[in-house]
């Protein structure tokens, strides 16, 4: 029975199949919301209200000619998209969606999984950098360097922010952290600053406006993806969608009390809570202009990092007080 459960976990929910389907759905939601903010309709033609458009885009890109530049480092160029996609898919498995019992530890839920998921979510950034490096293109090189610079700006505040709820809950395991807040829902309010920082840094990690600096088309064409086309570009786009789902899931698990109630209610909670996060991300994208990289760094270290630190201090004091 456990074997079957693990296979289902890997392949169906929250594994490959679910992540693929749900991430395209989330992309559709994001596009629709963004369009609504702009008085547009967004995708309308494929499926009901264009709901199948992201899948159509994916299939179309998969069928397109896949060009590898002559000057590129071919092995690296080809390997990078797969590497990055794999890392976010693995990260998806670590989400505590199926509510494994708090005591039973498995390959997908263990002490310290919060650290692992955070690192797995960071791997694509290194992959983008390598992609830019391997492309042998000026725009890709600038994009790649910007990816890393951006990473240095948001990574520390992000880690500090996601550690606060863990410190409060006294655990390094996502399932246990979620369980703690399900038991003490009011404690969620304590982490309000960390929540804000986590949302903003997630937007930066996803490289969306106002933090789409590494692939700002009006400045550096396509950034690290300039030379990518066809299948590999499709993989990058899919991975960005999955990263959004996993990132939203991580925030939901840490700051919104996770997904209680077993399979079906847990599934519904997952959809509802991740969509709330996606809504915030879309709104942020619609109401801001892109920052410059130096502005992003100073914003990050002047505001986000101190705010996350303040949160950590608050959590530590409160924890002492509450015990």
């Amino acid at each position: 029975m456990d074997i079957l459960k693990i296979f289902l976990y890997l392949l169906v929910y929250p594994g490959l199949l679910f992540l693929f389907v749900y991430s395209t759905f989330v992309e559709w939601v994001d596009r629709k919301l963004y369009a609504k903010f702009q008085n547009r309709m967004g995708p309308m033609h494929t499926g009901s209200h264009g709901i199948l458009q992201p899948i159509a885009d994916f299939v179309k890109l998969m069928a397109k000619e896949d060009i590898v530049p002559k000057e590129a480092d071919k092995k690296l160029f080809n390997a990078v998209p797969i590497l990055a996609l794999t890392s976010v898919l693995t990260a998806g498995l670590l989400l505590p969606v199926w509510h494994f019992s708090d005591t039973f530890q498995s390959a997908t839920s263990f002490q310290g999984d919060i650290i692992v998921i955070a690192y797995l979510l960071s791997l694509p950034s290194f992959a983008y950098f390598l992609a830019g490096w391997a492309s042998a293109s000026m725009y890709a090189a600038i994009g790649g360097v910007r990816v890393l610079t951006l990473l240095f700006a948001y990574e520390v505040p992000m880690f500090l922010a996601i550690l606060s709820p863990a410190v409060m809950a006294g655990s390094w395991r996502l399932a246990e952290i979620a369980a703690y807040y399900q038991a003490n829902p009011w404690h969620l309010l304590i982490n309000i600053f960390a929540f804000a920082v986590a949302i903003i840094t997630l937007q930066a990690k996803l490289e969306r406006v106002p933090f789409d600096i590494p692939h700002a088309e009006t400045e550096v064409v396509g950034g690290a993806f300039t030379e990518y086309s066809g299948r590999k570009l499709a993989m990058f786009r899919l991975l960005a969608d999955i990263q959004m789902v996993v990132g939203a899931g991580l925030i939901a698990a840490l700051f919104m009390g996770g997904f209680p109630g077993g399979l079906i209610p847990g599934f519904i909670w997952f959809i509802v809570k991740t969509l709330v996060v996606v809504f915030i991300l879309s709104a942020m994208r619609a109401v801001t202009a892109r920052l410059r990289i130096d502005q992003m760094i100073s914003f990050s270290w002047k505001w986000l990092a101190p705010l996350a630190l303040l949160q950590l201090v608050i959590v530590i004091f409160l924890k002492g007080y509450l015990q």
Binding site: Q38, N39, R40, V209, T218, A286, V287, A289, R290
Partner: peptide, 16 residues
């Protein structure tokens, strides 16, 4: 100008 600095909402609204 909005589009250049990544603020596409400005683009969509002014063009509407």
């Amino acid at each position: 100008a909005g589009h250049i600095i990544g603020f596409d909402t400005v683009l969509m609204q002014t063009w509407r």
